[in-house]
């Protein structure tokens, strides 16, 4: 019963993560959503294998522990990348309306430099 409940919880969090990742343009929100998906995965990894003597299987536990540290490392690196990107292009979003290159492709007539001018204050 406990396992089934937490599988459903993991599924809901994974879905929320996917939604957040797709919908939000801000990179930090995307990172938060990715971290949610990771947590859902960790939960699944612990809940699904059969427990031994009332405790979760130690091998997946060690895997998840490694995963938590890897997650914080990659998040820190991604955040540093985001700050650099923000410094360079003035916004930390991935969005077709704000990206000159994508904008040029989407609306053929509006060229990239114009988009640049619109954005700058």
């Amino acid at each position: 019963m406990t396992s089934a409940i937490f599988v459903l919880v993991a599924a809901a969090i994974f879905g929320l993560g996917v939604h957040g990742l797709l919908v939000s343009a801000h990179i930090m929100r995307k990172l938060l959503a990715l971290n949610l998906m990771l947590s859902a995965l960790f939960l699944l990894l612990i809940v699904v294998p059969a427990s031994i003597d009332g405790h979760p299987d130690p091998v997946p536990q060690a895997l998840v522990l490694t995963g938590i540290v890897i997650a914080v490392s990659t998040t820190a690196f991604a955040l540093a990348l985001m700050v650099r990107l923000f410094r360079k292009q003035g916004h930390a979003t991935i969005h077709p309306d704000l990206d000159p290159a994508l904008l040029g492709r989407k609306h053929g007539r509006r060229t990239a430099p114009e988009a640049e001018g619109e954005r700058a204050p």
């Binding site: 599988v7 459903l8 809901a12 994974f14 879905g15 699944l44 809940v47």
Partner: peptide, 10 residues
């Protein structure tokens, strides 16, 4: 995606 995770897990 949530359905997939739930199906696999259950």
């Amino acid at each position: 995606a949530a359905g997939m995770v739930a199906t696999i897990g259950l």
